[in-house]
Write a protein that binds this DNA or RNA. Structure first.
Length: 110
RNA sequence: UCAGAUGGUGCGAUGAUCGCUUGAGCAAUCAAGAGGAAAGUCCGGGCUCCUCUGGAAAAUAAAACCAGGUAACUCCUGGCAGACGUAAGUCUAGGGAAAGUGCAACAGAAAAUACACCGCCCGAUAGGGUAAGGGUGAAAUGGUAAGGUAAAAGCUUACCGCAUGACUGGUAACAGUUGUGGCAAGGCAAACCCUUUUAGGAGUAAGGCCAAAUAGGAAUAACAAUUAAUUUCCAGUUAAGUUAUUCGGGUAGGCUGCUUGAAACAAAUGGAGACAUUUGUUCUAGAUUAAUGAUCAUCAAAUUUAGCAAUAAAUUUACAGAACCCGGCUUAUGCACCAUCUGUUGCA
RNA sequence: UGGGGCGUCGCCAAGCGGUAAGGCACCGGCUUUUGGAGCCGGCAUUCGUAGGUUCGAAUCCUACCGCCCCAG
């Protein structure tokens, strides 16, 4: 499977997704989702950890966790030609990795 | 044993699987990959650009016991003085109040030139002498004792304090000894200020290079049946216009700056120490939505729960993430360990 | 990266070396049949935190914490 996972790097695309995409609320992470046919069969992921999550160490840790989740979950279950933005919540550190996986699968599939 | 002082060290280890960043390689793959504070951005430098021929003064800001260390510092080391502590030790913006200006609520007679409010003494009053006694205040113009006097007073003497000359020790700050003076010079300079010393400004988003699209600029050539100016007409010229080519500036973006450096480690030598010198070995992060993670196993540590205990289960560790680079300071920090030292109690 | 400012009662704030003004809100009382309005009284013990200077600090100095603004 030749599915490539791009990362979103521009602020303008983040704003675009936030304005026109869907917002799905979860227990540990929130997801923003937008379908776009101009991606040519790829999938793009962005990660957001605000200052509410904690200091720099905690924000980095949250991003790493979400990156790992994206690699394991989104490649299998995600839709092609779509943007995903994962937003960390404060409770992400209290959950184990397996529960996070289950949560993300549930959020994506609905 | 308990309580403390100073200085220092470490932060999980090993293996497997899946991944991330950089470098090398055609490729397979191989190698490397966060800290003592990376933090706050509080100081000092390197590096780069700007201003200036070079300097000086003013202004502003900072520093302020002595000697040394350092590329430099407001940093560090050693010492001196003062304060605190039973002690080991700790702390100190620690120059100048006799250049000048200013401040001190309330209370108190008086808060700074003691014009004496009460009191004491002389005296018939007027007036004079007197800082010993008022009980205020944070602070009241040397303290105690004796002599002295009308009452008093460094007025005199002794001791203590203070100031100052000389000598001795010390590189010096300073300390000690001894003589002299007879108390003069109250406090606040983290109030203004004075003295001495230091400082040009901006920052790697500095600076350098490459360079789309769009818009605009310049040059050259061509087109003219157009418009305007040259008083009118014709020709010419100039300025507008269109097309083509070229040029440089420059935005997005990219490359560089970027990691070999006052470098790290080890040993020896010098020094009381900070530190310096020599020799050897090593190359040790370079991201830009910003790289170190996830899962499993064993061992080690901590916490919680259950248990009389052995032990079992769960959770993972404190503070915290490089962003041009060094030297410091400050702040945040759990646990374990090491070295030297002090006091107390008990025993010998 | 560099520069500047603020923090005082629940809210808005004055004071800038000598016992922390005021307004709104809140509480109690008076008045009223009741409420409102009015009148009287009450409400700051670490002046963001810690240390220092001083006889004395909200005020001066130093270091932290939080918030806001400006330039690039």
């Amino acid at each position: 499977m030749a599915l490539t996972l791009q990362t979103i790097k521009n602020r303008s695309t983040f704003v675009h997704i936030r304005n026109s995409g869907n917002f799905i609320k979860g227990e540990f992470i929130n997801v923003q989702f937008l379908e776009d046919s101009s991606l040519n069969g790829a999938m793009a992921v962005g990660f957001t950890a605000t200052k509410k999550v904690g200091n720099a160490v905690k924000r980095n840790k949250a991003k790493r966790l979400m990156r790992e989740l994206a690699r394991k979950v989104l490649i299998k279950y995600g839709k092609i030609n779509s943007y995903y933005v994962l937003i960390a919540k404060n409770s992400i550190f209290s959950a184990s990795f397996a529960t996070l996986e289950m949560e993300l699968i549930k959020l994506i599939s609905c």
